[in-house]
């Protein structure tokens, strides 16, 4: 049942679930954004581990060595895009947090809900 070749996926699953737990269970909005970031890095890690080839090297051409094994460049490209998009969404989320703090004076979800009910 224990397969050593699958540890990389399990590490990603554990990281991903940590991020998901933070997003669901924490009331602090900045903490939620941190959880989203954790989740995102775990997905990136999943793709990068899939792109690794045993005995391979980074996908940059080695001159004069035609039978070099290269790791798969495709997941790397996709993840470059994902990292940058992730930062864009993080920036947007944080700007919303700042905006919420300007209006409500708090970044705790529970406090905001209580204020809304009190209105």
């Amino acid at each position: 049942m224990i397969e050593p070749g699958l540890y990389n996926y399990w590490l990603c699953v554990i990281l991903m679930m940590t991020g998901l737990y933070v997003v669901m269970a924490k009331g602090n909005l900045v903490k939620k954004v941190i959880g989203l970031n954790l989740f995102q890095v775990s997905v990136i890690m999943l793709y990068v581990t899939m792109g690794k080839v045993e005995g391979g090297t980074a996908p940059i051409v080695v001159e004069g060595a035609p039978d070099t094994i290269y790791s798969n460049p495709l997941p790397h490209v996709l993840m470059l895009t994902a990292i940058v998009v992730g930062v864009a969404t993080t920036a947007l989320a944080l700007s919303f947090v700042v905006r919420i703090h300007e209006d409500y004076g708090t970044i705790e979800e529970g406090d905001i809900a209580a204020m809304e009910e009190g209105r």
């Binding site: 900045v30 954004v33 941190i34 970031n37 890095v41 990136i44 990068v48 581990t49 792109g51 690794k52 080839v53 391979g56 090297t57 980074a58 996908p59 940059i60 790791s71 997941p75 790397h76 993840m79 470059l80 990292i83 940058v84 992730g86 930062v87 993080t90 920036a91 944080l94």
Partner: peptide, 22 residues
Amino acid sequence: MDAVDVAFTEAAVGAGISTILL
């Protein structure tokens, strides 16, 4: 894991810009 491009983007953008934004 041979993903050098992803590594330096993560170091610059993930560790750098995200931290500054937070």
